[in-house]
Simulated assay, not measured.
Amino acid sequence: MKLTGIHHIAIICSNYKVSKEFYTDILGLSIIREVYREERDSYKLDLALNDHYVIELFSFPSPPSRTSRPEACGLRHLAFSVQDINKASTYLVEKGIVVEKIRVDEFTGKKFTFFEDPDGLPLELYEV
């Protein structure tokens, strides 16, 4: 088997409207398609970043909670690259989002920081 890339990341949210607004209006991902699946009482929102399909955002009735700190066992976090981390961090703070202090990766010397989506999913900004 030879992997050729990552196709998408699936995220289940607790409040579809709030998460849709967060990922589209605040983070700026574009909508490819939005589908309501009546048999599951579930929305599926396909989102792109720079015209590249990256996230499937799902809603389901009463999804169970999950531990989601960056150091929890399992998927650690989702990281987005940015050109200017100070500008991106300031933008998020202006939108009312709590952003951790900017740190420097001890191995690469690159700046990074963490924030959370509406359900507490750890997200990272990494300056490239």
Rank of each mutant, 00 (worst) to 15 (best):
F80T: 01
A79F: 03
K101T: 00
L27E: 05
A10N: 05
M1S: 09
K2Q: 10
L57K: 00
K44N: 15
R33S: 03
P70M: 13
E34D: 09
T4V: 10
L47S: 12
P118Y: 10
S62W: 04
D51T: 09
F112T: 00
M1R: 13
I85N: 00
I55D: 01
P61F: 00
N50I: 12
A48R: 15
N15S: 09
V93N: 07
G5V: 04
I6L: 11
K87G: 02
L92F: 15
N86I: 01
P70L: 15
I31R: 02
V18D: 09
I97T: 04
I11R: 04
L27H: 07
Y53D: 06
Y36M: 14
L125F: 12
S81R: 05
E94Q: 14
L29T: 02
K95A: 02
R66V: 15
D25V: 06
L47A: 12
V128W: 05
D117I: 08
E71P: 00
K44H: 12
I97F: 06
R69F: 11
I11Q: 01
F115E: 07
P64A: 14
E127K: 07
Y36T: 07
F58G: 03
F60C: 03
R76W: 08
Y53W: 08
Q83W: 02
S42I: 08
P118V: 09
H7G: 01
V98Y: 10
D51W: 07
S14L: 06
Y43G: 04
S65W: 12
E21T: 10
A88Y: 02
E71Y: 08
R66L: 12
E106W: 09
G120A: 10
S14F: 10
Y36H: 12
S59T: 00
S68E: 15
S68A: 12
T67N: 12
E39M: 15
T24W: 07
K111Y: 02
V35E: 08
L125S: 01
F22R: 09
H8G: 02
Y23K: 10
H52G: 11
G120E: 09
D117K: 14
F107S: 10
A79V: 01
G96Y: 13
I11K: 04
I12P: 00
Y43W: 14
L27D: 05
G109K: 05
L45M: 12
F115A: 05
K44E: 15
E39H: 14
L49H: 15
S89K: 13
F60L: 14
P118R: 08
T113Y: 07
I6C: 04
